[in-house]
Every structure is written in structure tokens, then in C-alpha cells.
């Protein structure tokens, strides 16, 4: 359980976080989505007690991070995979973590195996690691002391597609055990595949949050039929807002079942019927963050 409560962080005149509140609940994967520079990392650093909040407070498992006894046994963090001593071996980094948190050293081998680092790789110095290997080591480090909360900042960076899929099922498994997962990404596709809940941040403000299903549901239904004009009229009769999609078909502001009913009554054969899933969330993501995103200046 992570709870961020009205956190504001200012650096002089610059407001990095503006009254940010959200929760990550146990048994669920919470995706923290936002463009670069939106404040994701700062918010996670506030959660981990590395950055003091100007106002507001963040708690993990009901208490401020700094007051957790032996925090590694409660919370697994991966804030920056490159923040490791280049001259240490991967195995040494995990061994130090195991000694400090007081867990059995055998977990070093267990977690190395879990993240797919061979013992040869683990015995190499980190300066020779690729970004993907550093991410894997970072995930191993986060899981080392069997925490119940995971906080991962852009963990998919540098992982190949197979690695991303692997991580997805790993985090799913962690949440199914009752763990809390908060992971950030600036990639929408990645978040909506893995997250049960989504928190969208832009320009230091939370611009949307809810379950992934809720956020997807708002995006209407895409339909194509043998007679779109007639279907559009039928939908309009049922007080459903309809817009024409340029590539052909309609976007109806309702769920697929209602569209199907309308088509049946109108006697129109459907060619395609689907929830306006990815495109909808993508629209939302761009819309909600456009004003604050770096790309916004160019749009």
C-alpha cells in the first residue's frame, strides 16, 4: 500500500509536483503514466524518502518510508538502474543487499536466476553491463529481500520485447501474491497491458486516475457496418452521440452492446464492433498531457 497525500514539491519558482494525491493498493499493479519530465520520478523519490516534499506527505504501508524498520524487507525499489557502482560485480551488489537486510545469501542466487543473469554475467563488473542487464539486476535487487511493495521507475527501459513480457508476468505474479506494485512509464501501450489501475501525471499534476477498465470504458465503441448512415441514425434515435471515423466506420459514445442492439433493430449487418480501447486511452493521454508535455510546444 502506497499513499501519496497532497504532495507538493517546489524547487525555487519551479513546481515539480503540484498537490499530487494517489494510491497504489495491494494485490494490484498501479501504472504511473506521464510524459518525460512530468514528475513521475520526483513523486517516486518522495515516496522513498529521498526527496523531501515541500508540503503534503507520502506513506508506504501506512508510515513514512524513513520510519520503516529495515525498509528493504518491506519495499523493493528500482529508481535508477544505472545508480550502481561501476566497479562492483552484480553478485556483489546483491550480496551487500542480502547482508544489510539480513536475508539468506541463497536469495542472491535465487533472484539472479529469476532475472535471468547467468553466474558468469553476475561475476562481471557493472561497467560492462548493458542497460537491459542493469535493469534485470535492479529488479533482482528490488525483489531480494522479499518485499510486499515494489516501486519501479521505468523498469522496461532497455529490456527487449521478451524481457518486457517476462517482467509483465513477473509483476502480475507479485500482485497476485498480494503485493503492491507501482511502476512508471512514459509508454502508454506498456502501462495499459500491465496495470490494473492507472494514474496519469502531466506537468506535476495528476490529470486522471482510475482503474484501467474505467479509463478504457470512457472511450466509446468503434463500429463498421454495411450501412453506416442508417446505423448512425438508429444510434442517434437512442440519444447516442456518433462521430464519423475518417478511415470508415463510426465512433459511438456508448458500449458495444448498445451499438449491437441498435444495429439489430435497424437491420444493419455489422462488419466490425469493438471497444475503442487503445486509441481512446491514447487520445486521453495526449489530450490530458498535451499542455504540459514537451511535445506540446511543437503541436
Amino acid at each position: 500500500m502506497i499513499s501519496v497525500d497532497h504532495v507538493t514539491k517546489r524547487y525555487g519558482a519551479f513546481t515539480a509536483l503540484d498537490d499530487v494525491s494517489f494510491e497504489a493498493r495491494p494485490g494490484r499493479v498501479t501504472g504511473f503514466l506521464g510524459p518525460n519530465g512530468a514528475g513521475k520520478t520526483t513523486a517516486m523519490r518522495v515516496v522513498a524518502g529521498l526527496t523531501p516534499a515541500t508540503t503534503g506527505r507520502a506513506t508506504v504501508l501506512g508510515r513514512p518510508y524513513a520510519t520503516l524498520p529495515n525498509p528493504g524487507r518491506h519495499v523493493g525499489l528500482l529508481l535508477d538502474a544505472s545508480a550502481q557502482h561501476a566497479g562492483r560485480t552484480g553478485r556483489e551488489v546483491l550480496t551487500l543487499g542480502a547482508i544489510l537486510t539480513g536475508v539468506d545469501r541463497r536469495r542472491v542466487d535465487d533472484t539472479l536466476e529469476l532475472v535471468g543473469l547467468t553466474s558468469k554475467e553476475a561475476n562481471r563488473r557493472i561497467r560492462n553491463y548493458s542497460l537491459g542487464m542493469r535493469q534485470r539486476l535492479g529488479i533482482a535487487h528490488a525483489l531480494l529481500a522479499d518485499p510486499e511493495v515494489l516501486v519501479l521507475d521505468e523498469p522496461a527501459n532497455g529490456l527487449d520485447p521478451a524481457g518486457i513480457r517476462w517482467m509483465r508476468s513477473l509483476l502480475r505474479g507479485f500482485a497476485e501474491r498480494g503485493g503492491t506494485v507501482l511502476l512508471s512509464s512514459h509508454l502508454l501501450g506498456e502501462i495499459e497491458r500491465i496495470a490494473d489501475d492507472i494514474v496519469v501525471i502531466g506537468g506535476g499534476r495528476i490529470v486522471a486516475s482510475g482503474t484501467t477498465a474505467e479509463l478504457l470504458a470512457g472511450s466509446g465503441t468503434v463500429v463498421r457496418s454495411t450501412d453506416d448512415a442508417r446505423l448512425a441514425r438508429a444510434l442517434a434515435d437512442r440519444a447516442v452521440a456518433v462521430t464519423k471515423v475518417e478511415a470508415g466506420g463510426l465512433l459511438a459514445d456508448t458500449d458495444p452492446a448498445t451499438v449491437g442492439q441498435a444495429a439489430l433493430h435497424a437491420g444493419v449487418a455489422l462488419l466490425e464492433l469493438r471497444g475503442g480501447d487503445e486509441r481512446g486511452l491514447e487520445e486521453m493521454f495526449f489530450e490530458l498531457t498535451a499542455s504540459s508535455a514537451r511535445e506540446g510546444a511543437m503541436a
Binding site: P69, N70, R73, H74, I99, L100, T101, G102, V103, D104, R107, D110, T111, L114, G116, L143, A145, D146, E148, A162, G163, R165, W166, S169, L170, G173, F174, R177
Partner: peptide, 28 residues
């Protein structure tokens, strides 16, 4: 597919409760 594609198995949970005392100074 690389072993990646298979569902990863998390290491077994550590038996016993979570620590309520901090890290001893000698260990640090």
C-alpha cells in the same frame, strides 16, 4: 522462446514475519 517467455517464478517468500526492528549498527 527464451525462458523469458515462461512465467517467471518468484523466489519463495521468506518465512516468519516482517522485521519490526531496524538494521543493527554493527551490520551497517
Amino acid at each position: 522462446a527464451p525462458t523469458d517467455a515462461a512465467a517467471p517464478r518468484l523466489p519463495a517468500p521468506i518465512a516468519g514475519g516482517r522485521p519490526t526492528t531496524g538494521i543493527p549498527f554493527t551490520r551497517l
